[in-house]
Write a protein that binds this DNA or RNA. Sequence first.
DNA 1: ATCCAGGAACTGT
DNA 2: ACAGTTCATGGA
Length: 302
Amino acid sequence: MSSSNLSSMIKINTPRDFNFEECLVFLDRSNQELLHRIKDGYLYKLIKVDQELILLKISYKIDALNVEFPLGDPSKNARKLAAEFIVDWFDLEQDLADFYEMALYDNILNQIASKYRGLRIIGIPDLFEALTWAILGQQINLKFAYTLKKRFVERFGEGLMFEGETYWLYPSFDRIAEIDIEHLRELQFTVRKAEYVIGVAKAMSKGELKKENLLKKQDYLPIHNYLTNMRGIGAWTADYVMMKCLHQRSAFPITDVGLHNAIKFQLGLEGKPTINEIKEMALNWTGWEAYAVFYLWRSLYD
DNA sequence: ATCCAGGAACTGT
DNA sequence: ACAGTTCATGGA
């Protein structure tokens, strides 16, 4: 038997209520993004599992994601971890039937839930990336947040050239744990942002902060309390990370400005709703706050 | 050019 | 417990 020149492919079956196109719209929202690339209908992303660099080339066909490996065949174990990464990234283990049921009679979600049906929370499976991306985005507009991220990744991340394009890995916490505040000041981080990012990197590098330990806590409050006890992580950041990394359906970054704008637009309000008004509106969302927020964020990109 | 935005920590009451 | 201030920059 001669070996094939073609890389092997894996298939990941997708659950009902999955729409790849809708997920791509969200992934394509910034032209400054450098941690994935959409080209000719394929989604590319570089990941590292078990010390192996793997370039994922993902497409969708009939109830499954097809994943190709343009750099060549990863080991069997790496392929398994890559598949787990994708399930995590697209939140494929979630059954959304109850969310859509709830949204049917919800003033705010009614239209967008059916319009974007099949959109899943596009996560940030890497805890360090989720936390520090949230910290980067604190207090500034999204465009500048992407500028900071681009500088950060290009300066401290790992890049790989393939067919004329560079694919990037987010910087590792071990690398960031050993740099100084001035190195981030050069990239126009504020002193505070730099302190927070390096602080999180050190906590993770020492093994004090681990995704698996947070997931073990299971419930909303213990996780939220643990996160907000860390310097630089307030309620908004904790909820953002619980939503994007820890699959907490009740995570609810209620002070988020994008959320406020989206609600204002959906209801045709004159001004932004107050926090108390949002609390009132969100009573109906109990258990699905994270998906409500995500769909509202998506509505900002139409 | 001037002002405002806007998460989190810090400061003061 | 709660209100006001500071950070430091981009964008209106």
